[in-house]
Every structure is written in C-alpha cells, then in structure tokens.
Nucleic acid binder design. Sequence first.
DNA 1: TTAAATTTTTAGATTTGTCTAAATTTTATT
DNA 2: AATAAAATTTAGACAAATCTAAAAATTTAA
Lengths: 220, 220
Amino acid sequence: MNFTVSEENYIKSIYHLQQQKGTVNTNSLAAEMHTRPASVTDMLKKLKIKKLLQYEPYKGFRLNEAGKKVALDVVRKHRLWEYFLAEKLKFDWDKVHPIAEELEHISSDELIQRLEKFLGNPLFDPHGDPIPDRNGKIPVINQQCLSDLPLKKTVIVSSVSKQTANMLEMLRHYKISLGTQLTVQKKFDFDGSLEIKIFKQAACIISEQVARNIFVHHDL
Amino acid sequence: MNFTVSEENYIKSIYHLQQQKGTVNTNSLAAEMHTRPASVTDMLKKLKIKKLLQYEPYKGFRLNEAGKKVALDVVRKHRLWEYFLAEKLKFDWDKVHPIAEELEHISSDELIQRLEKFLGNPLFDPHGDPIPDRNGKIPVINQQCLSDLPLKKTVIVSSVSKQTANMLEMLRHYKISLGTQLTVQKKFDFDGSLEIKIFKQAACIISEQVARNIFVHHDL
DNA sequence: TTAAATTTTTAGATTTGTCTAAATTTTATT
DNA sequence: AATAAAATTTAGACAAATCTAAAAATTTAA
C-alpha cells in the first residue's frame, strides 16, 4: 500500500513516541508534530481505516504490526539518507536531519536497496542510531552510557543522544566523534564530572551532563 | 520564493514545451501532464499571480525570465539526480527518470551543490542532456545526428533522444552507449540504413530510424 | 461571413490536510 | 461524589489541487 507524506510523518512520530514513552496520546503527538490535537484526531481516523493502528475515541492509540512495519521502513530510509549525506556529501552531523526528512519520502524500493549497497550496508547512521534492514530488523549493540562506565575500561563512542548544535560544537572541541576510543580515568563525586583519556590525545574533563548523552560500546 | 511540487511540475513542463514547440497552449500542456485543461487554467492563474509567466485568458502563455529560472533549477536537479542514479547506484538509463521526478523536488540548495561536487561537476546527464549550472547556464555541445554524418569521420556518441526500453535494448545489443567511438562506413540509399564501425568491435548495420535518434560530437 | 469545430475558461464539486472554537469525555481534586 | 481541570473529539471552515459539465471565446471552413 502507498502512504502520503503526511501519513508517513504521523506514523513515524507515533513510532518514536511509542519507543520512548511507551504510550502515545493525542496531545503529545500534536506537540511532537507541531500541529493541533484536532488534526491528530483526524489523521488517527484515517490511519485506523488503513488498519495501521488500534484507536478507539478517547482511549489512546498504538501502532499495530502493520503500522510498525511502515514506520520502520521510513526510519530505514531516513537513516540511510543521513548516512549518505554525512559520509558521501560531507555534511555535518547536525545538518543532515532536515534534508533526510524530505528524502525519506521518496518511494522507490529499488532506490533504497541500491543506496544501501552503495553505502556498504551500514548498520548505524551518523548519530549512531541503528538502521533497520529490509525486513524491519534493527541491529543491536551493547551500549552503555559514558556516565555509568567503570574506570579504566577502553571503549568506543557509538552514539550521542542530544544532537543539538551546541552539543555538536562541544564534541568537536573535545575531538570526540563516533568511533573515538577513550577511557574514563577518574570520576569526581563533587559534580559527577569525568576525567577521560581519548586515544592519542591529552586527558581532559567533561561534565556529567555531557557524559550522560554519550554512549559507548566495548567490542573492538 | 518556494514552490509546491505541483507548481514545479507545471513550470518544468511549460519550459520543455516552450523549447520544443515554441508556443504552449492549454490543451498540449494538459496532454503533456496527463491532466485536464481546466486544471491547467487553474494553475496558470496561480503562476501568473506569482509572476512566473505571461498569461491572458484565451491568449496562450509563456514563461518569463523568473519562470525560466525556476524551470532550469528543477531541470538541473533532475539531471544531477539522474547522473547520480546511473553512475553511482548503477541504475539502467531507462529506470532513472521516474525516480529523478521525485528527487528533483527536494528543496535544499546546499544538497544540490554538494551532490554536484560529489559527482565531479558533470556537464551532461546519462541521456546526454546538458545539466544547467547554478545560474541556469546550459553547456553547449556541437551535436550532429548520426543519420546526417559524412562517411569516415570518427565521432563520439553524446546523446540519444528516444529513450524507450526498446531503444535501450537495441543500443545494449549493439554495445552503443554514451561516449562510444564510431565511424560511419557506408550509407545504403535503399532504406537509409548505415554500416558503422564501433571502436574495438566488428562493423554492423543500423536502421535509419535508430540512427536518427543517436547524436554525436567530434571533439575528443 | 456565418456556422461549425476547437480551444479555453468558468462554475461548482471533491479530496486531503489543516485549522479554530465548542462540545464531550476522562481524570484529578477537594 | 461533585466539581474543576485536562484531554480529546466534533463541527464547521479553509486552502490547494484536482475533476466534470457547461459556457464562452476563438479559429476554421464552407
């Protein structure tokens, strides 16, 4: 079945809220999408008719399996395009999102398959988020938050959750990017800040707030 | 100024008809766009308000300079994406058009500039059509139709006008593609067919009908 | 030059996605 | 439990893009 750009955007947002918050309600979806609750209600009726979600008036809603499949397909396209923009066209991390928001609605399946192959079948996008495969399967990675990490373990930065321009500026300053190897050397209990040693760089200190948004994994 | 997908499609079609036929009228534009004359009239009013064309009811119409600029920008995007699809993603010539029809409406200017650079600033798309530059300037090439070519001149295939699946199949069979070097060795007056010698291949004969759709240039 | 044919436009309807304002339902509070 | 607050839905409107059917203008041709 085919979906409009608007339908795809609603499905994607419902999916993301469902993942983060567990439940989705009309107001939070309206806020997420910068639209009005009444518009959400209208769209929910359409998506119910298309059998993509469970929805009873006044009772909340949730994507069913068919809806999740559609969402994962859009997420897959979004993240592959982000990878393309960052890796091939050399866009900065924080510039790729709005462009991928448009590209994710291009409909050709063959395009996406060829793009994936051209990019070398990447498993994670430039923000470290996993790219679902053709069947909607999401690669898993043993991630741990940098702020919870025991001392002296060498790890690799795998994703960053708050991707604001400010955060990016900070990371650029510290020369931290995805794939960066580092070790936590000391934790200051006073404010939770960490002394870290980045591979081939001098030791430095980062705040707990920054550390809480950096995720790492252990595998080489 | 920003334009809707529909506006861009109308502008592009008007531009192409204007190039081919000189004048544009409501019925031919409706035919070209697989829509109804009444819909064309409606859109013309909108485009006139946006000052993109001259239009007086019952008097025909024509893009002005602002309209041509918009058209060339869409054409530029279309052809750059076609080049990307063929060169990077290895799509066949005859598959790239419908996908580029969608991609051409992605709005980011920076995307197109980076894409152009990534592709190596190509001047012609996979069909041999010229790619306008950022300012709307179109590269020129001294093209000649293969059917008009004098004997014994070595030339290079630069474009193919009829890009149907059948024509493509034929060209693949003859191993002719853009950039192919060849010489016309003999012309048969009976049916206008040509004996051609393709670089590194045995001589072969092509019909006048095929020859009329192949264009060549002389420069190395 | 008048009638017929063609082209083009208008009038009015439809679909999609959105909105505001009001009504309804659910949840929380006293 | 009654009422206030919050969340959600309905009712009705609007803009964009399209359509059909009918009217109007232009062109062609007898």
